[in-house]
């Protein structure tokens, strides 16, 4: 049951991710990226992190993808620019192949010791909030400065000069 759920979600994630980078129409890319994010949120729920799943859906599917969709629908002509040159395309597959081989080799050699069992950790709001506002309070406050500077920067960039 759980295994089937994991396989289904993984297949959905990989297929929609492939559809993001392969579809010609950018609007289809955005829609498949939303599907990909929803399936990743399903993975988060499976990994007993429901708060992160909800935040993921709100932030990504709710805010970021709407932003993408707005920009595409406002700006983009239907004529899509194509792919890069053949050298870059083959080079990219080579790079990704090296990455995959590295991960597989790390697992084969047993350098990567991964635990077998889930200890009882729950990613509920209260436990996560205790860590976030206790141990990581100062980075959390600093991130608000990042947001403020981003808002100022976006307004400056968006102004017609």
């Amino acid at each position: 049951m759980i295994l089937g759920l994991f396989c289904f979600l993984s297949l959905l994630t990989i297929m929609s991710a492939l559809s993001v980078i392969l579809s010609r129409n950018p609007v289809y890319s955005v829609l498949s990226l939303i599907l990909c994010f929803f399936s990743i949120a399903g993975h988060y729920i499976l990994l007993s992190a429901p708060f992160l799943a909800v935040v993921h859906i709100i932030v990504y599917a709710g805010a970021i993808m709407v932003l993408f969709l707005f920009v595409i629908m406002l700006m983009m002509r239907t004529s899509d620019v194509g792919l890069t040159s053949w050298v870059k395309r083959i080079g990219s597959f080579f790079v990704v192949g090296v990455l995959g081989v590295t991960i597989v080799a790390l697992m084969q050699r047993g350098t990567l010791v991964l635990p077998r069992y889930l200890a009882s950790v729950e990613g509920s709001v209260s436990s996560l909030g205790r860590v976030l506002f206790g141990q990581y309070a100062i980075p959390f406050e600093l991130s608000t400065i990042l947001f403020l500077s981003a808002v100022v920067g976006v307004v400056m960039l968006g102004k017609k000069s």
């Binding site: 980078i21 620019v81 194509g82 792919l83 890069t84 870059k88």
Partner: peptide, 19 residues
């Protein structure tokens, strides 16, 4: 890793800035 690889291929092969 597979997702990261797909994203990396997308960065390298697509010419559309939004994608």
């Amino acid at each position: 890793t597979a997702l990261f690889g797909i994203g990396l291929i997308g960065v390298l092969i697509r010419r559309n800035v939004v994608i």
